[in-house]
Simulated assay, not measured.
Amino acid sequence: MTTTSNPVNAAVRAGLQRGWIEFRTIATSAADLLGWLWMPIVALVVMYTLRGTTVPGTTFSLGAQAVPGILAMTVVFTGMMGLAMALTSEREDGTLLRAKATPHGVLGYLTGKVVGQATLTVAALLVVLVPSAFLFDGLRLGAVGAWLTLVWVLALGLVATLPIGAVLGSLAPRPQSLGFVMLLITGLVMASGVFYPVTAFPAWLQWIAQVFPLYWLGLGMRSALLPDALAVAEIGESWRHLETAAVLGAWAVLGFVVAPMVLGRMARRATGSTVREPAT
């Protein structure tokens, strides 16, 4: 038993170390940081220009109401899509093939990618939260309960979305193939109440939004950061914590069932012939 488990434990430890190194590499590169942070920063600037506009039926700033949605959008684009793009690119440049050549190397590689992308996502969220504390009034950033809710929603949201990113990265034949997926997700962001209460949309669009984890991520983060009175702008005039946990949990379970099968298939198909020739 010890002989079997030690190589696995070593691969996981190596993956954790690799993930931290990858995060530090990005964090110390201004160009890389800008590449990951420009979208939430632009969204934050747009919402700041709307701080004088109020949520329909309330006196609360529409800009402040959108901050939790921007956080949810950051989880999806930085975490989920970031992992998808990394897997697709590194499958082509031979990184995955090199990992496959070592015992439990794929496990260590995937552990590193997940840890690195999750850490980067948390850092990106702080980049949004810190200035929001000064730019917008009414956010519950001083309440302990708000942070506890934010932590469990974020943790469950990452567990629900990162496997989706792994699946997308495994299925995409080329990095460019993810462009269409990005376009679809951008449309989903618009329909999920990130910039405007979803209750203002047609009923059929509200149902579509509720199928995907992005809406529930945004709802859970709104429940953490916004006053309870703002629940009146939500579906059912409630934060629906139980439903949030159930839907995100269901996506997490689905992801943990599907992702290993798809990733295993991708790793088995990784050969020297699938590695992209370097440009000359």
Rank of each mutant, 00 (worst) to 15 (best):
M1I: 15
T2P: 12
T4A: 15
S5D: 13
V8N: 13
A10R: 05
V12C: 10
Q17W: 12
R18G: 07
F23V: 04
T25F: 15
A27M: 14
A27V: 09
A31N: 08
D32V: 06
L34T: 09
W36Q: 05
W38Y: 13
W38A: 14
P40W: 03
I41W: 03
I41F: 03
V42Y: 01
V42T: 09
V46N: 08
T49D: 02
T49G: 06
R51G: 14
R51F: 12
R51T: 13
R51C: 13
T54D: 14
T58V: 11
T58Y: 08
F60T: 06
A66G: 03
A66F: 02
P68S: 04
G69N: 05
L71R: 09
L71H: 06
M73I: 00
M73D: 01
F77T: 01
T78P: 05
T78G: 09
T78A: 15
L83V: 11
A84K: 01
A86W: 11
T88K: 02
T88Q: 03
E90H: 04
E92I: 07
K100R: 15
A101W: 02
A101M: 05
P103A: 03
H104N: 10
V106W: 00
L107M: 14
G108N: 02
Y109C: 05
L110C: 13
G112N: 00
V114R: 13
V115P: 12
G116D: 03
V122Q: 10
A123D: 14
A123W: 14
A124S: 07
L126P: 11
V127G: 09
F136S: 03
L139I: 11
R140E: 11
L141H: 09
G142I: 13
W147H: 04
L148I: 01
T149Y: 09
V153N: 02
V153W: 04
A155I: 11
V159G: 00
T161R: 10
L162V: 05
P163I: 08
V167F: 15
L168W: 03
G169S: 02
L171T: 06
P173G: 03
P173C: 05
R174Q: 02
R174I: 10
S177K: 07
L178A: 00
G179N: 08
F180K: 04
L184H: 06
I185Q: 09
T186H: 13
V189N: 13
A191I: 08
G193W: 08
V194W: 15
Y196T: 15
P202G: 06
P202Y: 07
A203E: 08
L205P: 12
L205E: 08
Q210N: 08
Q210R: 10
V211C: 12
G218D: 00
M221E: 06
R222E: 03
A224E: 05
A224L: 05
L226R: 11
A229C: 05
L230C: 06
V232L: 11
E237P: 07
W239C: 03
R240D: 10
H241L: 15
L242Q: 14
E243K: 15
T244Y: 12
A245T: 05
G249H: 06
G249I: 13
W251E: 04
A252Y: 01
L254K: 11
L254S: 07
F256A: 10
F256T: 06
V258E: 12
A259C: 06
P260K: 15
V262I: 09
A267N: 00
A270P: 00
A270W: 01
T274G: 09
R276E: 00
